[in-house]
């Protein structure tokens, strides 16, 4: 059998490398009975479309994104609550534990099996003219965000004026001065050359994003147990490789972009940001109180 494994990343991205590794691991443990056809660079559509295709059984697997998954499993959006995770190892222990299982159970109702979570990175703020080490620096800042509730709420809480805009239109909008800045993981900032327009990058680390690896329930439930174990294992192994790459790339990208003229800064007092955005958690307390409690406990 041939499995189509679709994702949106281009060569050079850790997700791309991990997908290639996954494609090598699967035939090895199924004795060549299952092969993987990796469809990279969004050739099977964007993340939302890939998720729909997987849920509908058109393609078997996708390394996807947290935002689109949250449109199906709103709980997944809570992973992006502002300043929730201190560092990546904390995230990994949460996602590989009960929280990950709970998200998988919810996703199965919508026809998606979550095999594991790879990383997408931690989001940072870039600005055209200054670094933003304190919440006060964000006051009134016109910042572009994705169309994502928690991100918009977080920047509103910090006193900025966030507005959603399509990723494809972002460079033009930044160049024209409609926005003073934007926020993204360093991989995205570098690949879209955003550091040339917004060279002041502050490592706010305000939001974590995962790369959920999903499989079509229709297809998954028809597999025998040995094949399921093999595929799940391959996704996890490739995941550790991806997490490692992601971590080291985060460091090397900073140096690369500094060499190309970007100015980096750390936040002065992370607690000040945490306090300023505490209200965002209250907004979701009513609907997802249990999950937020579990997340808080796991991250303390």
């Amino acid at each position: 059998d041939e499995v189509i494994f679709a994702h949106g990343a281009n060569p050079g991205n850790p997700r791309y490398a991990a997908a290639e590794m996954f494609a090598d691991l699967v035939p090895a443990c199924t004795g060549g009975e299952t092969t993987v056809n990796v469809a990279a660079s969004a050739t099977m559509g964007n993340d939302v479309e890939m998720l729909t295709s997987v849920a509908g059984g058109v393609i078997q697997m996708s390394a996807n994104s947290q935002g689109p998954l949250a449109q199906i499993v709103p709980e997944a959006g809570m992973l992006g609550l502002p300043f929730l995770f201190e560092d990546l190892p904390t995230v990994w222990s949460v996602l590989d534990g009960e929280v990950g299982d709970m998200l998988d159970a919810k996703a199965q109702n919508a026809g998606l099996k979550i095999l594991t979570f790879w990383d997408n990175g931690i989001r940072h703020v870039s600005h055209t003219s200054k670094n933003v080490p304190t919440p006060a620096d964000l006051e009134g800042m016109q910042i572009r965000t994705p169309s994502d509730e928690t991100t918009i709420a977080a920047f509103e809480a910090l006193g900025a004026s966030p507005a959603p805009l399509a990723w494809s239109e972002l460079p033009t909008a930044l160049q024209s001065g409609v926005f003073e800045g934007q926020e993204n993981p360093l991989t995205n900032i570098y690949s879209a050359k955003l550091h040339e327009i917004t060279p002041y990058i502050t490592l706010t680390g305000h939001k974590y994003e995962s790369t959920p690896v999903v499989a079509s329930m229709v297809w998954w439930s028809g597999l025998d147990e040995a094949t399921q174990e093999c595929i799940e294992g391959a996704a996890e192994q490739a995941g550790w490789y991806q997490r490692g790459l992601s971590l080291s790339q985060g460091k090397s990208l900073r140096e690369t972009m500094e060499a190309e003229g970007a100015t980096f800064a750390e936040v002065e007092d992370r607690q000040a940001f945490i306090d300023a955005t505490a209200g965002v958690y209250d907004q979701y307390e009513g609907d997802y109180g249990d999950l937020i409690g579990a997340l808080r406990e796991a991250t303390q």
Partner: peptide
Amino acid sequence: KPMAVIAQRLYS
């Protein structure tokens, strides 16, 4: 192959 891909690509 799964023919539902047509609807998904049409919508995209």
